[in-house]
C-alpha cells in the first residue's frame, strides 16, 4: 500500500497531465460534431479491419440459423410472387392496354456483411463492410432478411457505422400492418428481441401476433418492411395512447448479412421539405 502511494505521489504530475488530456478529449469528442465524426470514422477504419478478420471466422458458426431463416423468407416470397403473378394474369385479361403499367424502382439495395455488432449497451451500433464508395450515405435505412435493423450513422470510404434498432435514442416510424395508425418504435434496453411501439391511439383494434411494419413516412424505409409482431399491451402514462410490446423479427444475436436501402427519390423529397421550411420562415 505504501509502495502504491509512493508510486502515485512520485508520478502525480503525469497522472494530473493525463487526467486533463483525457478530460479535454472527452469534451472535444462528445461536444464537437465534426471532431466526433472524424474520430468515429478513423476509429471505424481500425476497428473494422480487426473485426473483419474475426468475422471471417465467426460468420460460419451462424450459417445454419441464417440459412433456415433465409429459406423461410424465400418460401414466403415465392408464395407472394406466385400470388402476384396470378393477380397480374387476372388483370391482363381485363386490361388490353398494359402500357399504362409503368413501374420505376424507387428503392435499391446494397448488400453488406456485418463486421462487428454490440447488444449489451444502451446505445448499440454495428459496422458493415460497405461505405461511401459503395453509395452508402448517412441516414439510409438498413434491413436484413427478416426486417429493419438500423440506420446509417457515419460512413468512411469502405465501411459504415450503423445505429442499431437496439439503440435507446433511435425511434422508428411504424404502424400495425393494414391499418393507417402510425406509432413510434424504440428499444428500451434489456432483451435484444423485444421493443416497444408508443403513441398508438386507444381506439385502434389489434390482436396479439399482428405484424408491425414501417410506415413509409420517411425516405429511410419504404412502407411495409416488417419490424416485429405484437406480444402484449403495456400500461401507458398517457390515457389517450397505448404502448405495445413487440417481438422483433430480426435476430440481432446472429446479424450477419444486411442490405442498405437507397431511396432514388430522397434528394427530391428532401429538397421539397427544405422548400416547405423556407416558406414557413
Amino acid at each position: 500500500m505504501r509502495n502504491l502511494l509512493n508510486f502515485l505521489i512520485h508520478y502525480s504530475t503525469w497522472f494530473v497531465f493525463l487526467f486533463y488530456v483525457v478530460l479535454s478529449c472527452v469534451l472535444l469528442f462528445s461536444h464537437n460534431t465534426f471532431q466526433q465524426s472524424i474520430y468515429l470514422s478513423s476509429a471505424n477504419i481500425v476497428a473494422s479491419k480487426i473485426f473483419g478478420a474475426a468475422t471471417n471466422v465467426t460468420d460460419y458458426f451462424n450459417l445454419r440459423t441464417i440459412n433456415a431463416s433465409l429459406q423461410e423468407r424465400n418460401a414466403q416470397l415465392e408464395n407472394e410472387v406466385f400470388n402476384l403473378q396470378n393477380e397480374i394474369n387476372g388483370y391482363r385479361t381485363i386490361l388490353n392496354d398494359t402500357n399504362a403499367l409503368t413501374f420505376s424502382r424507387r428503392f435499391n439495395y446494397v448488400s453488406a456483411s456485418v463486421l462487428n455488432n454490440s447488444l449489451r449497451r444502451p446505445r448499440n451500433y454495428f459496422t458493415i463492410d460497405k461505405g461511401a464508395s459503395d453509395g452508402v450515405k448517412t441516414g439510409m435505412g438498413v434491413v436484413d432478411q427478416n426486417g429493419v435493423v438500423g440506420i446509417v450513422n457515419v460512413t468512411s470510404p469502405h465501411t459504415a457505422r450503423i445505429i442499431s434498432l437496439l439503440n435507446e435514442t433511435q425511434h422508428f416510424s411504424v404502424k400495425i400492418k393494414d391499418t393507417p395508425f402510425v406509432g413510434s418504435l424504440s428499444w428500451k434496453g434489456g432483451d435484444p428481441a423485444t421493443a416497444y411501439v408508443e403513441e398508438i391511439p386507444r381506439h385502434v383494434r389489434y390482436t396479439i401476433g399482428d405484424t408491425i411494419v414501417t410506415s413509409g413516412f420517411s425516405t429511410t424505409f419504404p412502407e411495409g418492411i416488417p419490424v416485429g409482431t405484437v406480444m402484449a399491451r403495456v400500461r401507458s402514462a398517457d390515457d389517450n395512447f397505448f404502448v405495445l410490446k413487440v417481438r422483433l423479427t430480426s435476430d440481432f444475436t446472429t446479424l450477419s448479412t444486411v442490405r442498405v436501402l437507397q431511396d432514388a427519390l430522397k434528394a427530391e423529397l428532401d429538397s421539397l421539405t427544405q422548400f416547405d421550411l423556407r416558406i414557413d420562415e
Partner: peptide
C-alpha cells in the same frame, strides 16, 4: 468544448 482546454494543457 475541449479545443482550447487540450491545447492549453
Amino acid at each position: 468544448p475541449g479545443v482550447n482546454a487540450l491545447a492549453c494543457t
